[in-house]
Amino acid sequence: MTDDSLSLTIATPARVVVDGLAIVSLRAEDASGGFGIHVGHVDMVTLLGASVVRWATPDGTAHFCAVDGGVLIVSNGATVSIACREAVLGESLQGLEAQVHGTRETQLDAMRRARVEQTRLHARAVRQMLRYLRPQAARGVPQ
């Protein structure tokens, strides 16, 4: 990192998505609206909503990352750190949109499967309790 660049780190609980990447500017969005960060920015902490964070590297390339909420911290006017629940990188907004939709569908499918399994386990537990509470009926003995 040089004096005219920032260091960017984006992390989720499961992985580090961007690790100390040199950038020249960053654009993000919190509850008050969009804002930009450049070298020398005052220290700050803010909560990000579900949004797209954009940044430019020293070669002028734009990069994008969809974040599912999180915390953005600027330290010493040279370091930007984002901690978020989920992050999806993309090289273009159109490509990122498709990736986010795919990721979201995968998450929804996993949640549906977990709900079905939870219901199945609950029903099994109720049947076991009924067998325990009415042992004669379970064995076919009239009450």
Rank of each mutant, 00 (worst) to 15 (best):
M1D: 13
T2Q: 12
T2N: 14
S5C: 05
L6G: 02
L6S: 04
S7Q: 11
S7P: 07
L8A: 03
T9N: 00
I10V: 09
I10E: 02
A11H: 02
T12N: 01
R15I: 00
R15P: 05
V16G: 11
V17K: 09
V17E: 10
V17C: 07
D19Q: 08
D19V: 01
G20N: 08
G20Y: 04
L21T: 08
A22Q: 05
V24Y: 01
V24A: 11
S25R: 15
A28C: 07
E29V: 08
A31K: 08
A31C: 02
S32G: 09
S32M: 08
G34L: 06
G36Q: 02
H38W: 00
V39G: 09
M44L: 15
M44T: 11
V45R: 03
T46M: 00
T46E: 00
L47Q: 12
L48W: 01
S51E: 08
S51L: 01
V52N: 07
V53W: 01
V53N: 04
R54H: 08
T57K: 04
T57Q: 07
D59F: 04
D59I: 04
D59R: 13
G60L: 03
T61C: 08
A62Y: 09
H63Q: 12
V67M: 03
V67I: 05
V67K: 01
D68C: 07
G69A: 05
G70W: 00
V71N: 02
V71W: 01
I73W: 01
I73H: 06
I73Y: 06
V74I: 06
S75H: 08
N76C: 01
N76T: 03
G77W: 02
A78T: 08
A78I: 09
T79A: 15
T79V: 10
T79F: 07
V80C: 07
S81G: 13
S81A: 13
S81R: 14
I82R: 04
I82H: 06
R85P: 02
R85Y: 05
E86N: 14
A87S: 08
V88I: 15
V88T: 12
L89C: 12
L89V: 12
L89E: 07
G90E: 07
L93K: 14
L93G: 12
L93Y: 06
L93H: 12
Q94R: 14
L96R: 03
L96S: 03
A98S: 14
A98E: 09
Q99N: 12
V100F: 03
V100Y: 01
H101E: 13
H101A: 14
G102R: 09
T103D: 11
R104I: 09
R104D: 06
E105C: 10
E105K: 13
T106I: 07
Q107I: 10
Q107F: 10
D109M: 14
D109G: 15
A110C: 10
A110F: 10
M111A: 15
M111Y: 10
R112A: 13
R112L: 14
R112E: 10
R113W: 00
A114L: 10
V116W: 09
V116Y: 10
V116K: 12
Q118D: 13
T119L: 15
T119G: 15
L121C: 12
H122M: 15
H122A: 15
A125L: 11
V126T: 08
V126N: 00
Q128G: 13
Q128P: 06
L130Q: 13
L130K: 14
R131N: 15
R134Y: 12
R134Q: 03
Q136A: 11
A137Q: 00
A137H: 03
A138Q: 07
A138C: 06
A138S: 11
Q143T: 09
